[in-house]
Design a protein around this nucleic acid. Structure first.
Length: 493
DNA sequence: ATGTTC
C-alpha cells in the first residue's frame, strides 16, 4: 500500500498556525481524508474530508477551528470537516461535531450557525428546458415578483402573533393546514416538516418581532431561487423515486430563518457565554460558547433552535408554493416537491460510537444529514432509495442531488455547497457586478437580482468548484451522486 | 447569515 493510502508522513500545510507558532499537521490517510492527531486540549482527533486542492488556503483559520472544536466537552468520534469547509463563527462552516449527552456533552449555538436551519428545497415540474425557453422572461418576471428578497422587507405570508406561534411550533405543517401546500409535501420534508421539540416560549420578543414580517422571503447573501434543468442522472432508479428525469425543469430555493434565527443565535450565545463558568466549562475560543445539553441553558437553546428550524421550513414551504403558482399561471403546470433539507442544525440522534449506543447532540453547520437506504427515519416512499440530499452550487454553476450511503462516516453527514474561498468583502473589491451579470446572461442564465453588491459578493469565482466538492464527498464515502442540475434562471437574494 | 456596528 502506498503512503497516500496507508497514512505516510504528515503533510504540513504551510502557513496555518495554531496558538501563534505550532503548525497544523495533517496526515493524509487517503486522497480524500486527512487526520489531525489529538494534541493539546483536543479530546478527539480532527478529520478533514478534502482533496489537497480543496484544503483551506493559507491563513483561512478553518483548520484551527477544527482543532478548537475537538476540545468541546463531551465530543465523541472526531471533529469533522467537509470538503466545502471554510472559516466561520467559532466552528468552521462545513463542520460536524457530536457530543455525548449523558456524558456531559454540550450544545453550542456556534455549531449550528446564525442562520438556523438554513437549507434547500427542490421542486420539479412536468416541463423541460424547451418549455422554459419559450416563456423564460415571463416565468422569471413572475418568480421575481413572487419572491420577496434582500435585507429586511416583507414576506409572502402575512402573519399575526398567534400565526407566528403556530409556525414556530408546527413549521410546514401549519402552512399546509392553512392551505399553503399539500399533505404530500410533508412526507418530502426532513422531519415531516417540523421538529417535534420546539419551544416557542424560548424565543425572545425581539426575535419574534424580527421574524413576524419575513415568513416567505429569501433574505440575501448566498440565498437564491433558481430555475434549473436536470443535466445529468447518475442513478436512474433512485432519481425516479425522487421524481427527477433528464432535462426536467426544477426550482431550487435556498434560504433560512432570516432575522428570527439570527436573533435566537445572538440571544443564546450571550446567555451561554455568561453561564458557561457556572457549569465549570472552558473552551479555546469564546465563540464556542456552550453549556451541557442537559442544562436549563442547553434545553432553552435547543427549544428555540427547533422553533427557528420550523420557521425556516415554513419559509421555504410558502416560497415553494408561491413559485408553483407562478409556474402554473404561465405554463399550465405546477411544481411537485422533491425534498426539503437543512444544513445548519443540531439534532439529538442515536449512534454507535466505539461499540456503545449513545444519545448524541450532532451539530451540523454547513453540513447535511445524509441517511442511507433503509434508515428507519426515512418515510416509506424514500426508505429504499435513501435520503435526498440537496447541494446548492454557487451562482451560475451546477447544483446536485445526492443520497446517503451505508458506510456514511461523520454520523451520516456530507457537504452542503460549494464553500467560499473569498470573503464577501474581497469579492466586492474584485468583481464588477455589471460584467458578472453580462457573463451569466451570455451563458443563457436569466438574472433577476436584488442589488449589484449582492451579485458581486456571490460571484462564482469567490467559491470552490462545486463539482470537485461533490466528487470528493463521494470519493470519501460520505454520499452518492444522483443528479446534476444546471441553472437557467436565478432570482438572487 | 444579519434591520451587514445594540
Amino acid at each position: 500500500m502506498d503512503d497516500a493510502v496507508s497514512g505516510g508522513p504528515p503533510v504540513g500545510i504551510a502557513g496555518v498556525k495554531v496558538r501563534g507558532e505550532v503548525r497544523v499537521e495533517l496526515v493524509e490517510e487517503t486522497p480524500y481524508r486527512f487526520r489531525i492527531d489529538q494534541h493539546g486540549s483536543m479530546r478527539v482527533p480532527g478529520v478533514v474530508f478534502a482533496s489537497r486542492r480543496l484544503l483551506p488556503p493559507k491563513g483561512d483559520g478553518a483548520l484551527e477551528q477544527v482543532i478548537n472544536v475537538a476540545a468541546l466537552p463531551g465530543i465523541v468520534g472526531a471533529s469533522y470537516a467537509m470538503p466545502d469547509m471554510h472559516w466561520g463563527y467559532g466552528f468552521p462552516i462545513g463542520g460536524v461535531a457530536a457530543t455525548d449527552i449523558r456524558g456531559g456533552g454540550v450544545v453550542s449555538p456556534g455549531g449550528v450557525g446564525f442562520d438556523i436551519s438554513c437549507g434547500v428545497r427542490l421542486l420539479a415540474a412536468e416541463l423541460d428546458r424547451s418549455d422554459f425557453r419559450r416563456a423564460a422572461e415571463q416565468i422569471m418576471d413572475g418568480l421575481s415578483r413572487a419572491t420577496p428578497r434582500g435585507a429586511g422587507r416583507g414576506g409572502v405570508w402575512e402573519l399575526h402573533r398567534e400565526g407566528l406561534d403556530r409556525v414556530l411550533e408546527e413549521g410546514s405543517r401549519y402552512a399546509v393546514a392553512r392551505g399553503r401546500g399539500t399533505p404530500r409535501d410533508l412526507e418530502r420534508c426532513e422531519d415531516g416538516g417540523a421538529l417535534a421539540d420546539a419551544e416557542p416560549g424560548q424565543v425572545s420578543a425581539r426575535a419574534r418581532d424580527r421574524g413576524l414580517g419575513q415568513v416567505g422571503s429569501l433574505g440575501s447573501g448566498n440565498h437564491f431561487l433558481e430555475v434549473q434543468a436536470v443535466a445529468e442522472i447518475y442513478d436512474q432508479a433512485v432519481a425516479k423515486v425522487f421524481g427527477l428525469s433528464f432535462d426536467q425543469l426544477c426550482v431550487m430555493i435556498h434560504c433560512g430563518s432570516r432575522g428570527l434565527g439570527h436573533q435566537i443565535c445572538t440571544d443564546h450565545v450571550r446567555a451561554m457565554d455568561e453561564s458557561m463558568a457556572d457549569h465549570g466549562l472552558t473552551v479555546p475560543d469564546r465563540q464556542l460558547a456552550c453549556t451541557p445539553v442537559d442544562s436549563p441553558e442547553g434545553r432553552a437553546y435547543l427549544g428555540a433552535m427547533a422553533a427557528a428550524a420550523n420557521y425556516a421550513r415554513a419559509n421555504r414551504q410558502v416560497l415553494g408554493v408561491a413559485a408553483g403558482e407562478v409556474l402554473r399561471k404561465v405554463t399550465g403546470r405546477g411544481l411537485d416537491l422533491v425534498y426539503d433539507i437543512s444544513h445548519n442544525l443540531a439534532k439529538i440522534e442515536t449512534h454507535d460510537v466505539a461499540g456503545r449506543r449513545l444519545s448524541l447532540c450532532v451539530h451540523r453547520k454547513g453540513a447535511t444529514r445524509a441517511l442511507p437506504p433503509g434508515h428507519p427515519e426515512l418515510p416509506p416512499g424514500l426508505r429504499e432509495a435513501g435520503q435526498p440530499v440537496l447541494i446548492p452550487g454557487s451562482m451560475g454553476t451546477a447544483s446536485y442531488v445526492l443520497t446517503g450511503v451505508p458506510s456514511g462516516d461523520a454520523f451520516f453527514s456530507t457537504c452542503h455547497g460549494a464553500g467560499r474561498t473569498q470573503s464577501r468583502h474581497q469579492a466586492v473589491r474584485t468583481i464588477d457586478a455589471r460584467r458578472l451579470r453580462r457573463d451569466l446572461e451570455h451563458d443563457g442564465i436569466v438574472v433577476r437580482g436584488s442589488s449589484a453588491r449582492g451579485l458581486a459578493e456571490e460571484a462564482p469565482t469567490a467559491y470552490k468548484d462545486v463539482d470537485a466538492v461533490v466528487a470528493v464527498a463521494e470519493g470519501a464515502g460520505l454520499c452518492r451522486r444522483i443528479a446534476r442540475l444546471v441553472p437557467l434562471g436565478v432570482v438572487k437574494g
